[in-house]
């Protein structure tokens, strides 16, 4: 089964790190990605740009509105995600608890939903 691990962090804390601390943090995260890749559990992992770089898009009555900034102003922000393959939720939680940033932030683990097309789309 596929699970997404959503990494939430306090961006301000991350930005306050010294350069060597930030480098160590990045190296550790990349090393864990590699470890998961070797065991065949990693599908992909990506860090996100800070929320101030986000644009929020809505379409209402055919009209597009785009506003600067993230959808929700929260104390912790989504900073990245890992898409993993795990036997079950327990295995996914085990993998999530070894994400280095789990020591600084919170990791939300959620199963992926396979969307099924209706009969008209099945060919």
């Amino acid at each position: 089964m596929k699970y997404v691990c959503l990494v939430y962090l306090v961006e301000k804390e991350m930005e306050a790190m010294s350069e060597s601390e930030a480098d160590a943090c990045t190296d550790e995260s990349l090393a864990y990605d590699d470890a998961l890749r070797r065991t065949g559990q990693l599908i992909m992992a990506h860090a996100l740009a800070p929320v101030e770089m986000a644009t929020t898009v809505r379409v209402r009555k055919g009209k597009l509105s785009a506003t600067d900034g993230p959808f929700a102003e929260t104390t912790e922000q989504l900073g990245g995600f890992l898409l993993i393959e795990a036997r079950d939720l327990n295995e996914a939680i085990q993998a999530a608890s070894r994400i280095p940033l789990a020591r600084r932030g919170s990791i939300e683990v959620r199963p992926i939903k396979e969307l099924k097309p209706s009969a008209r789309r099945v060919r």
């Binding site: 990045t26 190296d27 990349l30 996100l48 740009a49 929320v51 929020t56 898009v57 809505r58 209402r60």
Partner: peptide
């Protein structure tokens, strides 16, 4: 993002990906 049909019901936050590089 605006062409994604469920954007009519919900909200789409668009965010650039940050490429991490080993130090």
């Amino acid at each position: 993002a605006a062409r994604f049909p469920p954007a009519r019901l919900g909200i789409v936050e668009v965010r650039p990906v940050r490429e991490l590089e080993h130090s």
